[in-house]
Every structure is written in structure tokens, then in C-alpha cells.
Design a protein around this nucleic acid. Structure first.
Length: 516
RNA sequence: GCCGGAGUAGCUCAGUUGGUCAGAGCAGCGGAAUCAUAAUCCGCGUGUCGGGGGUUCAAGUCCCUCCUCCGGCACCA
């Protein structure tokens, strides 16, 4: 069984989980579930980024140690993911001993390879905020964006990574692999960015300012700055590096099959540069392979503005969940947002997408199982179930193309269209008329068996996005569980005992504007 | 300013290498049916494919130009 390794970013533990985190993580979960159903041995990684000044300050402000705060926040994220049905295999924390050891090993490797040097870092420092701000943050007036006080240009000793050394190689890689960064618009941005000379990357900060971090193995007065610390989590969790081994046997430069490289890094478009420039060059510097794909997704916007807490226009997915259920929220997020692009949230669209689930899929399930019960005592007739064969083939093909090609919205549209075709099949077969005519009993058997078989296919197709409902669908259809794709071809539905029960997606009378 | 992307039915958008490409879903209007959550199914869209010019037998689909909108331009997680 071939393996598949996918990651979300690790989320910074200074804030609560929000829609942005939830979207990325659900996206990853859907892909992970899809790959598992397709027979892959999946490693799905998520976690929290726990070092740095903000954590240090936030902990102090709340009278806690940094680690206590991180324990608390990591728990919040894990609880949120449990509620959203996330099936990650590993939740990594950058404060774990294993991760700290791998980061240390990576830093040593970079230094041994001659890619690290000491130099002065110059930046715009705010004495009041005790931190550096970027050019963008301070604006033309050169004041810190929080207190509005002037910032000053100061210099301090830092260790640098020779990122510039790898610029050419990186550009060539991006050009050689057109689908390495998707969508294409993000790829263009990176290429545009790399059109200018790449500077080297500062990778440390003096411990006198920030002590909540991983010390550099060769300079105890400096801690590792965020990039190397956070990004390395992907390698840590892959298990490719054994930091306890002698230097030459730790796994750097090792081409043997392993979890590394990752098949895909899922990220928001805000951290594109770190993942498409910093990270690959760091990997090159350490003789590690590059991830196979970087998928940057878009933002949820309200009207024309990004959702943000300060604007007060945040829609908390957990709130929607209370009324519509977790699976409905997942469906909306995956179906409404074209993978990689921005999408606009409106209550109206949410309800439309929910109605789709209830009316097209949910109703198909209910009417099918009800007819099996009414006309055949709840036992699926044996014999032929070969209706809708062409429609099913077509839908599966489009579905795999969508899910496999990271156009999830298209894949799920194909799944829904199969449910539509099945409803059309019911109309054209008129089982209720067949049931009144004893001479057409065989045709009714075939119709019902076809419909149940289609439900099994739909359970498999929908499981990645609405896992709990798909499981229920399978169970009610009399199956032991949701079938894998490979099992669909030979699946027998005859003699299964079905349970109509109450609707899978009950009608919700909520009207637009009434949530959150 | 520089680079990149987008402007197609009321809304959200599909439209490979130019020639049934003028489409889908939603909304709207009309009809059918009753197994089902009044849930379904069928039928109905002459829209200057942002404006103008050009190439071609033929252009949303290529070239030029203009207009509008969006994104990126690094140590920010």
C-alpha cells in the first residue's frame, strides 16, 4: 500500500482556532479521507507552533508559564478538530522534545554544509513593543502599527542561512514542475518574487530578547527564529530524521523511501513565501527532498472584505455546526469555495448548499430506503442492479479527477450530480407504478437494487466531506461500513436489510441572517 | 510604480491547442408525478462573451490599445 503524507500549517498557539484554521484543516481532512478510501496509507499531520515572543508575552500577561499557555491552547485546537470530525494521525507541538531535537539536527546539518554565517541584522525596532516591524507594517511614516510610536533602525547580531545560494535552483524547480505550486496564480507570484535577488534569511534572535525557543546548538546566546523552528515540523513528523544517530546517519541526503517528502503541504495564501521559498531552500541546504506539492488556498470573504475579528464579521464554523451539524458545515466550505480561490460567505448560499444535501442526496436516500421497505419488506432484492451504470462510471471518473487534482468543488459537484441522476432514474422508472403491476415485479427488483447500489457509491463519494452522514447512509443501507472505491465494482447489495429511519439531513427552517 | 490575474445570462461561475462554445448550477416562469424531508422530475434563457481596433474563410478563444476590479512586491504568524 503506497503512502500519502499531507500537512496543514501548524497554528500559532497565541490565538483561538478560527474559520481560517478550520478551513485549511477540513480541506486537509477531506483529502486525507479521500486518499484512505482510495487505498492509500495516509499520514495526516497538523499541530501547533508554540515558540516565540508573542507566546512568551501572552503567557506572562496571563500569569502562566509559556508551556502552560501552550498546553491550554493546543488543547483548544485539538478539541476544535474533534468537533469538526478531523481525522489527523498526528498532532505535533513544536515544544516536543523530538521536534526540538530534529530542529537542532537540521541546524547542525545546515552549518556543517557551510550554509550558516553570522552577521548583523538591521531592522525597524520598536522600543515600546520590544520587537521588530516590517516595512509594510510601519508604513511610510515609520511608526509601529500598535502604539503609533516611531520605530528606530537598529542592528543586532544574528545567524543567517545562505538562502541566496539556492535561488537559481529553486526557480528551475518551479519552472520544471508547473504544478508544484498550485493554483497557477500563486506560482506566478513566487516566480515574480524570485525575479529579484534573494536575500539571505535570518534564522536566530538573541536570547536576551526572546528566550522561549530552541537554542542554536553552536551559540547558546541565540534561539532559533520562527521559520526553521516551525517549518521543520513537517520533517519531524515524517520520522525521516533520527537526531540521536551519528551525524552522517541521521537521514539527511537519504534517498530511501520514507514518509518524507510530503505529498502535499496545504497552506493559506498568506504563508506562501515561507513555504515556497524559505522552506524549499532550507531543505536544499540540508540535503532533503522537496515536498511534492504546495497547495495555497484562498480566503473566506464577506462582501469584499476578509473575515476578521476586528471587523466583527467572523462566522464561527462551530456556531453554524450547532444548527446544521458538522457535516453540513464541511460540505458548505468544500463545495462553495473553488479550491485555491477566494469565496464569499453569505447565509443565503449556506442555506442553498444545505438544501442541496437535504433535497437531492438526503431525499434520494429516504425515498429509496422507504420504497425498499414498503415494496420488499426492507430487504434489497437480489439479482440485477445494473441500472445507472454509465452515469455512475461518468460520475466516478469526474469525481476522481476533481479530488485527485485538488479541485474538490468539482469532484463533489460530480458526486451530487450522480444523486441527481438517481432521482431522475426514480422518476423515469416510476417504482410506485411497477409495484401495482405484478407482471413487472422483476423490473421493480432491478430498480430498487440499482438505487441501493447507487447509494453505496454515493456513500463512498461523500464520505470524505460528510463522514458521519456517509457512515449512517451506509449503515442504513445495510452495509457494514462505507465501501472503498475498489470495492464498488463488485459490491453486492442483494439481501441487505435497510433501515429508512428519519431524514439524514432534516429540513432546517432557519432563514438567512439568523445565524451567529 | 513594477509584475501577475480577472472582467461570459439577475447571482456564482464552466468554457483544452480558434470552427455545434454561447453553457451549468442557483433564482424566476410553466408543467408532470406521488415512493420521499411539499423533498423530486421535465420544459423555458436572442446575454453587445468589459469598450475599441486588428489577424483569419472563421475569435469569449490569438495580437494591439483603453477602462474597471483583484492579488503579489520578503524576515508578518
Amino acid at each position: 500500500m503506497s503512502s500519502f503524507y499531507l500537512t496543514t500549517p501548524i497554528y500559532y498557539a497565541s490565538g483561538e482556532p478560527h474559520i481560517g484554521h478550520a478551513y485549511t484543516t477540513i480541506l486537509a481532512d477531506v483529502i486525507a479521507r479521500y486518499r484512505r478510501r482510495a487505498g492509500r496509507d495516509v499520514l495526516f499531520l497538523t499541530g501547533t507552533d508554540e515558540h516565540g515572543q508573542k507566546i512568551q508575552e501572552a503567557a506572562a500577561a496571563q500569569g502562566m508559564s509559556p508551556l502552560e499557555l501552550c498546553d491550554l491552547m493546543a488543547g483548544r485546537f485539538e478539541a476544535a478538530w474533534a468537533e469538526l470530525g478531523i481525522s489527523h494521525d498526528r498532532f505535533i507541538r513544536t515544544t516536543e522534545a523530538e521536534h526540538r531535537a530534529v530542529v537542532t539536527a537540521l541546524l547542525e546539518r545546515l552549518r556543517d554544509n557551510g550554509h550558516i554565517y553570522e552577521a548583523e541584522y538591521a531592522g525597524w525596532y520598536s522600543v515600546g513593543q520590544e520587537r521588530y516591524f516590517t516595512e509594510k507594517e510601519i508604513g511610510p511614516d515609520r511608526v509601529d502599527p500598535i502604539a503609533g510610536e516611531p520605530v528606530e533602525r537598529i542592528r543586532e547580531k544574528n545567524w543567517f542561512f545562505r538562502m541566496s545560494l539556492f535561488q537559481e535552483r529553486l526557480v528551475r524547480h518551479i519552472e520544471d514542475y508547473p504544478h508544484w505550486i498550485v493554483p497557477a496564480t500563486r506560482r506566478n507570484e513566487v516566480l515574480g518574487f524570485l525575479n529579484q535577488p534573494l536575500a539571505d534569511l535570518s534564522i536566530s534572535r538573541p536570547r536576551s530578547r526572546i528566550n522561549w525557543g530552541i537554542p542554536l546548538p553552536w551559540d547558546d546566546a541565540q534561539v532559533c527564529y520562527v521559520w526553521v523552528d516551525a517549518l521543520t515540523n513537517y520533517v519531524t513528523a515524517s520520522g525521516a530524521i533520527d537526531p540521536a544517530a551519528p551525524k552522517e546517519e541521521r537521514g539527511f541526503g537519504d534517498p530511501r523511501p520514507a514518509r518524507w517528502p510530503a505529498d502535499v503541504h496545504l497552506i493559506g495564501k498568506d504563508i506562501l513565501t515561507t513555504h515556497a521559498v524559505y522552506w524549499p531552500t532550507l531543505l536544499m541546504g540540508a540535503d532533503l527532498r522537496l515536498p511534492r506539492k504546495i497547495l495555497a488556498h484562498g480566503w473566506w470573504v464577506v462582501g469584499d472584505t476578509k473575515m476578521s475579528k476586528s471587523l466583527g464579521n467572523v462566522v464561527d464554523p462551530l456556531d453554524l455546526r450547532e444548527r446544521f451539524g458538522t457535516d453540513a458545515v464541511r460540505w458548505y466550505l468544500m463545495r462553495e469555495m473553488p479550491t485555491g480561490q477566494d469565496a464569499s460567505y453569505t447565509p443565503d448560499r449556506f442555506l442553498t448548499r444545505y438544501d442541496q444535501l437535504a433535497n437531492i442526496l438526503g431525499n434520494l436516500v429516504h425515498r429509496t430506503l422507504s420504497m425498499v421497505k414498503r415494496y420488499r419488506g426492507g430487504i434489497v432484492p437480489g439479482g440485477s442492479a445494473d441500472g445507472l451504470a454509465r452515469e455512475t462510471e461518468e460520475a466516478l471518473e469526474a469525481y476522481h479527477e476533481g479530488l485527485g487534482g485538488y479541485r474538490l468543488h468539482e469532484g463533489f459537484a460530480a458526486a451530487m450530480s450522480l444523486a441527481r441522476r438517481a432521482n431522475g432514474f426514480v422518476e423515469s422508472q416510476e417504482p410506485w407504478a411497477l409495484a401495482r403491476d405484478p407482471n413487472r415485479s422483476g423490473e421493480l427488483d432491478r430498480t430498487l437494487a440499482t438505487l441501493v447500489r447507487t447509494l453505496a457509491v454515493l456513500a463512498a463519494m461523500f464520505e470524505p466531506v460528510v463522514p458521519a452522514k456517509a457512515r449512517e447512509l451506509a449503515t442504513r443501507s445495510g452495509l457494514d461500513g462505507v465501501p472503498r472505491f475498489a470495492e464498488l465494482r463488485t459490491l453486492e447489495v442483494g439481501e441487505l436489510a435497510v433501515t429508512p429511519g428519519t431524514p439524514l439531513f432534516p429540513r432546517v427552517e432557519a432563514r438567512p441572517g439568523s445565524f451567529g
